[in-house]
Simulated assay, not measured.
Amino acid sequence: MKQNKYDDSSFFAKYSQMPRSIGGLDAAGEWSTFRAMLPELQGKKVLDLGCGFGWHCRYAREQQASYVLGLDLSANMLERAKEMTNDEQIEYRQIAIEEVDLPAGSFDVVLSSLALHYIEDFGAICRSVHAHLAPGGSFVFSVEHPIFTALAAQDWHYDSQGEKQHWPVDGYHFEGPREARFLNDDVLKYHRTVATYINGLLAAGFSITKLSELQPTKEMIESNPAWQEEVRRPMFLLIAASKI
């Protein structure tokens, strides 16, 4: 069975209190970069893999996408998404990302936000997305950066006074599962290198159109000093690709 932490009531309650869960896309620090990497959505059919509360689905419709399908394994996520959505052109379905089987070439844009690092076989996802996209279609996604996922601890090295000294990286080329702590619970993530992300896309028949490691801007740091940490090491990797 695929990992489904979000249907655990305690875990879901904690997730629901996160700033991005309450404030939506504007509370997600990577959103402005992600948004800039999206293609024109007007008149497009959009597929959201791991749609969560449906924030990106609703945004796509605000940009006049013709139809949006949001997929998620979690019943809790989809129930919340449906509660927040009043649009007949947005559909939500409960299914694992690995098990998506839709008509070939049926979407113009496939997007995914911070979901694919929970998937074991990234190459298979690339092939699946490529098949579901129409020619020239776009695939835009964000994941936790491999610098961030290399060690399961996902934490800084501290000195004796508790000050953050550096971000440790070890086992970078040993790809595979990492049992990380998230919201005081054990969560299984999959570490892979930047090269694996890029080569997986290329092997599936994509061309890379944009890559971002989300370097915080001066404005981001001024509005939220916590972003200063992200200058020291990248937390997010965002990639935009096009079906050849």
Results as ranks from 00 to 15, higher is better:
S138D: 05
S128T: 14
R178S: 01
D121T: 12
T149K: 05
I119G: 10
L116Q: 02
F182M: 01
E179K: 15
L183S: 03
A131E: 12
L116V: 02
H145T: 06
Q165T: 14
A104D: 11
S113I: 09
A104C: 10
F148Q: 12
G123Y: 09
D159I: 03
A180R: 13
E163V: 14
V140E: 00
A153F: 01
S138Y: 04
Q161T: 10
V110S: 10
K164E: 04
R178G: 03
H173M: 12
G136C: 07
Q154T: 07
I125T: 13
V169D: 13
V129P: 00
P168I: 10
F107S: 00
Q154K: 05
L111D: 06
R178V: 00
G162E: 15
D155K: 15
H145R: 12
F148L: 15
L133M: 01
T149W: 06
Q165S: 14
D159N: 07
L183E: 04
W167N: 08
Q165A: 15
F139C: 07
L133E: 01
H117C: 13
R178A: 02
V109I: 08
A131F: 11
Q161K: 15
F174G: 09
P103D: 11
P177F: 06
L111I: 05
H166C: 13
V187K: 02
F174H: 14
L102V: 02
L183W: 03
Y190G: 11
D185P: 06
E163Y: 15
R127Q: 09
V109K: 04
L183M: 05
L102H: 01
D170N: 13
D108Q: 00
F148A: 12
F174P: 06
R178D: 04
D155F: 10
A131Q: 11
L133V: 01
P103V: 04
R127F: 04
D170S: 13
L116I: 02
H157L: 11
F141D: 09
A150W: 00
A134Y: 01
H157D: 13
Q165P: 12
C126D: 08
A115Q: 05
S142T: 02
V143E: 06
H145L: 10
C126S: 15
S112W: 00
L102F: 03
T193F: 10
H157F: 10
E144G: 03
F148V: 14
Q161M: 15
E179L: 14
R127W: 08
K164Y: 04
P177H: 09
P103H: 05
C126E: 07
W156K: 07
H157V: 13
D185N: 09
C126W: 06
A150T: 05
S106T: 05
E120V: 00
P177D: 12
E120C: 05
D121R: 12
A153W: 03
Q154M: 11
D185E: 12
S160Q: 14
T149Y: 01
L102P: 02
Q161R: 15
A153K: 09
P168Y: 09
D121L: 01
A134Q: 06
S106K: 03
L183P: 08
N184I: 08
F141Y: 08
G171K: 07
E179F: 15
G123N: 11
Y118L: 08
H145C: 09
P135L: 07
S142V: 01
F141I: 08
